[in-house]
Design a protein around this nucleic acid. Structure first.
Length: 642
RNA sequence: GGGGUGGUAGUUAAGUUGGUUAUAACGCCGGCCUGUCACGCCGGAGGCCGCGGGUUCGAGUCCCGUCCACCCCGCCA
């Protein structure tokens, strides 16, 4: 073994070899991917992080005259002595053994394999060593795999050995590298912030860490570097970035992990446009370098389109619309009010509440929306019913009213067909642009539920009809800035106004007069970057004017004392000469997921957690002994069931 | 907190109205094979049907509970 490693150093990685390497003597190290034993000649595919190469172990090559017949391949006669040993070894090796070989790269002649990049060549092995044997793995280490994720995660080190995951993690590295270079070139300093921070109520739930040196007290793990990056601006660092882990103790999803990575940026003396162009430049660079794709073909101005939040909700039902396809919503609330319900009793009730002034048109509590499935989608009735079943997982969903439009504009296959007035029907057909054979889907009731249902319906239809793939980008990239959402949200439970994002977001200038009189209509300089229906980043221009800040707090019902307790150090800092500033954080994991086309975030994170937040590999989290808790002066109240 | 889907050899799946010895493919082990690359051919081993109760003469199959994984709603400023 010491002859390899110590004397014979690796010359190439397996996946790198090409026709241009023919005739070279190479030394390769790697894992046995497959072995095909023909009795005499043995083929072994050897794998490393770059790919796979075919090794040939053939006793015939112990003879010098056989070499002479092989064009372009020469070998020292003294080296032939190991060929038979190598062949003997090849007969014994098994999958995933770690081996080292010395050999000569030759052309495969008539036997090229077009399926792999190294398929033009093979290596005739003249010397070999086994570094380590391996137990049979619980699943095959191949590119395509259908093994349950549960098992893949329990043996993550084997899963990660697969070429697609090697490629994915390398892409993450590339994104990191481009980001560091680009943001450094743009004058941003990479500065670090603490993970162990002060607990902040509200917002995402914090992970808590007992503070041994301060018995009875706890740190929180940072949910983001938000406060600290603002302090960097106050301190005059002017432009900052960090590729940083964030921790949030919330329920998980396919695009959410309890610890995740953000590309965090904060800039002084900027407005929203400045933040956008910096980030657009970053995304263009990442696409060019990592995907070899020039986004200027799609966005010649070098800018992504923008859509106000309210318009996004109206047209798509959410704040992260997938723009790879149409199927926009139509808001029929006004039409329904004008038609006094158009004969539909549920709609009449809603219309009446608007007429009586119980509901406001600017911020409607209930709405009526429609979405047209074009006749060309050619969905059968059972398929439509299956779409409806898919919506049942949304809380508050009561059913989807459909109407198939006939040649004469009447509706069939619809619970609404009998009651709708001809006038209302005709106006709806016109407004939604429905033609014969189209199916109009209706949803009405509580605004939030209608939006959620219709947003899911829109995406489900697109997937079902093949407008977009089930997952992955389908080589379509549609970016969007969603801008100016409301600053406040009314909390039904407490009857108070709450900050929709955080209390330090700058209101849109022309809405500042409404801060007290009509908080619902105050929009702010907050923005999300959306790619193919995923929010990949979000940020805001911060509120640095103490006078406006005080008015925002007032609307939120936070008095001076509360404000001091909650945000004391930040308020002091903002009064100490804070520059106008703003920033953004990009979700590094989501970006990697979208760029690689991976179906879940877990596929772009080396060691992810399950949906229950457990690590299948290590078993974390675990119960710790009483003595460890005692040292921390922490007592668990957990009672095992039963 | 709520809704849904799944768990059967190492892996992926099939398993009929509840009925003899629980199937198949791949993988694994042994043998043969000098141009394969999803090598081929012959033979073999491999199972607490997630776990715990119940119904039944009899449960992979029916019922209850529970654990685990996945998807969604709430939640994630």
């Amino acid at each position: 073994m010491s002859r390899f490693i110590d004397e014979l150093k690796r010359t190439h990685r397996c996946g790198e070899l090409r026709a241009s390497d023919e005739g070279k003597e190479v030394i390769l190290f790697g894992w046995v991917a497959s072995r095909r034993d023909h009795g005499g000649c043995v083929f072994i595919d050897i794998r490393d992080r770059e790919g796979i190469a075919q090794l040939v172990f053939d006793p015939e090559y112990a003879k010098a005259d056989v070499w002479a017949s092989r064009k372009g391949a020469t070998v020292q006669s003294g080296d032939l002595s190991h060929v038979l040993d190598a062949h003997h070894l090849a007969e014994q090796v098994r999958g995933e053994w770690v081996i080292g070989i010395r050999g000569v790269v030759v052309s495969r002649g008539q036997n090229k394999n077009p399926k792999i990049p190294t398929g033009d060549v093979e290596i005739i092995v003249t010397e070999a060593a086994v570094f380590n044997r391996a137990e049979t793995p619980p699943f095959e280490i191949t590119d395509e795999i259908d093994t349950r994720e549960e098992i893949r995660l329990a043996y993550r080190y084997l899963d990660l050995r697969r070429i697609p995951l090697q490629r994915t993690l390398r892409m993450r590295h590339d994104i990191n590298r481009v980001t560091r270079n680009y943001l450094s070139d743009q004058g941003c300093l990479e500065l670090e912030t603490p993970f162990l921070v002060k607990y902040t109520p509200g917002g995402a739930r914090n992970f808590l860490v007992p503070a041994r040196l301060s018995p009875g007290k706890f740190y929180a793990l940072a949910e983001s570097p938000q406060l600290y990056k603002q302090l960097f601006m106050v301190a005059g660092f002017d432009r900052y970035f960090q590729i940083v882990k964030c921790f949030r103790d919330e329920d998980l999803r396919l695009d959410r992990q309890p610890e995740f990575t953000q590309i965090d940026v904060e800039l002084s003396f900027v407005n929203q446009d400045d933040v956008f162009s910096l980030i657009e430049g970053l995304v263009f660079s990442i696409f060019k370098d990592v995907l070899k794709k020039d986004l200027r073909a799609l966005y010649p101005e070098g800018r992504f389109p923008r859509l106000p939040f309210n318009e996004s909700m109206a047209r798509y039902g959410n704040d992260k619309p997938d723009l790879r396809f149409g199927l926009e919503h139509t808001d029929l609330t006004e039409l329904v009010i004008e038609q006094a319900g158009g004969g539909v009793s549920f709609w009449a009730e809603i219309a009446e509440k608007f007429r009586s002034g119980q509901y406001r048109r600017e911020v409607p509590a209930e709405i009526v929306k429609a979405l047209v499935i074009p006749a060309s989608a050619n969905l059968s009735r059972p398929q439509l019913e299956e779409l409806e079943r898919g919506l049942k997982e949304i809380k508050g969903f009561k059913g989807l009213a459909r109407a198939k439009v006939a040649e004469d504009g009447t509706w069939t296959q619809s619970p609404l067909a009998k009651s709708i007035t001809p006038e209302a029907r005709q106006k709806i057909n016109e407004t939604v642009g429905a033609k014969a054979g189209d199916v109009i889907c209706f949803q009405f009731g509580k605004t939030a539920v209608v939006h959620t249902v219709m947003a899911k319906l829109r995406v489900d239809i697109a997937k079902r009809t093949g407008l977009i793939p089930e997952y992955g980008h389908g080589d379509q990239w549609r970016f969007l800035w969603v801008t100016n959402p409301p600053l406040f949200e009314y909390d039904e439970d407490t009857g108070r106004w709450a900050a929709a994002h955080h209390a330090f977001t700058r209101p849109v200038d022309e809405h500042i007069p409404l801060l007290e009189s009509d908080p619902a209509r105050v929009e702010c300089y907050r923005y999300d970057l959306v790619l193919n229906g995923f929010e990949i980043g979000g940020g805001s221009i911060r509120l640095h004017d103490p006078e406006v800040q005080a008015r925002v707090f007032k609307t939120l019902g936070i008095d001076d004392k509360d404000a001091r307790e909650k945000f004391g150090f930040l308020l002091d800092a903002l009064k100490s000469g804070a520059p106008p500033h703003g920033g953004i954080a990009l979700g590094m994991d989501r970006t990697a997921m979208l760029l690689t086309g991976a179906p879940t975030l877990r596929d772009v994170i080396p060691f992810p957690k399950t949906n229950q937040g457990t690590d299948q590999l290590t078993g974390a989290p675990v119960v710790v002994d009483a003595s460890q808790l005692a040292e921390l002066q922490v007592k668990s109240t957990f009672q095992p069931p039963g």
